[in-house]
């Protein structure tokens, strides 16, 4: 790797720097409660909520840091934060 002065790099370079390991609590969907309102996707600060073909969503655990905003904002309490365990 050759550095560019000033730490200049192409956008999206953090894709190689997986930050999911920082997580303590992990968001988990309860699809029975989800009404596909999309708030979780809109509010996720790390673009770690990915839309699925069926209209529901899933988490990208490679980058979700477990901040819990999605669970906090979900109007149907369809996301629970569970302790990360090995």
């Amino acid at each position: 790797m050759t550095l560019l002065p000033g730490g200049v790099c192409k956008a999206g370079s953090t894709i190689v720097n997986k930050t999911g390991g920082w997580r303590t609590f992990k968001p988990v969907y309860d699809y029975d409660k989800c009404v596909k309102c999309k708030l979780c996707e809109l509010l996720c600060p790390d673009m770690s909520v990915l839309p699925r073909d069926d209209g529901y969503f899933e988490f990208n655990y490679d980058f979700c840091k477990g901040c819990g905003i999605c669970a906090n904002e979900c109007p149907k309490d369809a996301i629970s934060m569970t302790l990360e365990e090995k």
Binding site: L3, P5, A11, S13
Partner: peptide
């Protein structure tokens, strides 16, 4: 799109400082 002053961990921070001194 480009990022300026992007994250540099212990793996590369020293080299950025070295480049500044070189300049």
């Amino acid at each position: 799109p480009m990022s300026f002053g992007a994250f540099a961990d212990p793996e590369s921070y020293t080299e950025f400082r070295y480049l500044q001194q070189q300049s």
